[in-house]
Simulated assay, not measured.
Amino acid sequence: MSIPAALGIDPAIADLVHRVLNSTFGSILHSSFQKFALEGIFSLGRLQLSPFILNEDNPIGLNRLAKLKKIFEEGKSLQLQFPAEDLGFRYLEGALVDSGNDDTPSEAAVHSFRRGSRNYVASSKPGSRLPHMQIKALATIINKDSFLKKDNFSTLDLVSGDNVEFLLIIAPTKGSYNLARMSFDVADKYAISLKVCVIWPHGSSGMVFSGSGAEFKPRRNYIDVEEVKQPCSTSWWEMCHLSGNGAILVRPDEHIAWITESNTIKDPVSELDRVFFTILGKRP
């Protein structure tokens, strides 16, 4: 509670009011008085956060902002308490396509796991949140995206925060390029926006790099990126438990809608039509 305390919202005051209202004395007070007391406390709390107090021209506000800055710089802000649930939450049904080889545990097993472990394990199974990996842009084709100005960024940054847009992640293989081109066409038919990310292996920037422009021309809504591997870390496709022919379709909410191996699809157009119909719940 260090942050609200630094902002002048002392948790002890709220706790005191709560104890008084629930005491023998508080229970005999009329409900209108109890409501008045609570609204008074809320009003005082809102006042502490108002621009009138919380600004650098006000000595009180300046002091509180300095305390906040110190808390953040020293890494004492609220830490992630339940990574297994917050980052590892997975939809088991809805706008997603079952991969067909899922070993989804029973509800009892999931409950037991969550009580016994708080560790987050990255997963590419449909319904899971897109795993994080540090990457860097190899060609700023879609330079309208601000994250391309950074040296390194996250795979999660590939998901547009401003537009309702699907993301297809592939490797630079013939079959995956073919799947991506057809995905663009099917997305057009369904009148939805699609962006393609081609993830190249670590070290690709040291080679002669021409990019994926020839594969997608005249389309421009794609990006070539390279893995930024840390010592002893796995590759992107290893982490996702997919081969170099893998493809991952991500929803606008950062959750995975569909995964596949591009070299196993016999009729890509029909399969993509089935996938988008299942996810969107409607025909074009």
Rank of each mutant, 00 (worst) to 15 (best):
M1Y: 11
M1T: 12
G8R: 01
P11E: 08
A12F: 02
V17C: 05
R19F: 01
I28S: 10
I28D: 07
F33G: 02
F36S: 14
A37Q: 12
I41D: 01
F42R: 08
G45W: 00
F52E: 12
I53T: 05
L54A: 13
L54I: 10
N55E: 09
E56N: 14
I60L: 02
N63K: 09
A66K: 14
K69H: 10
F72A: 10
F72N: 10
F82C: 05
P83G: 12
A84Y: 02
Y91A: 03
A95P: 09
A95E: 04
V97M: 01
G100I: 13
P105M: 00
A108E: 15
F113Y: 13
S117I: 11
S117L: 08
R118K: 08
A122N: 05
S124V: 13
K125A: 07
K125Y: 10
R129H: 10
L130G: 13
L130M: 15
H132W: 00
Q134I: 00
A139D: 11
S146K: 14
L148Y: 15
F153I: 03
T155L: 09
L156E: 13
L156D: 14
N163S: 15
L167Q: 11
L168I: 08
I169K: 06
I170N: 01
A171Y: 00
S176K: 06
N178L: 06
L179C: 14
A180V: 03
R181C: 04
M182D: 14
S183N: 09
D185I: 08
A187V: 05
A187H: 07
Y190I: 01
S193L: 08
L194D: 01
C197Y: 10
G203V: 05
S204T: 09
F209P: 11
F209A: 08
S210T: 05
G211I: 01
G213P: 14
G213L: 09
A214I: 01
E215L: 00
N221G: 04
E227L: 00
K229S: 09
C232P: 06
S235M: 03
S235F: 00
W236I: 02
S243A: 10
G246W: 12
L249A: 05
L249F: 07
P252A: 12
E254V: 11
H255R: 14
H255V: 06
W258H: 12
N263L: 14
S270W: 11
L272G: 02
R274T: 05
K282H: 13
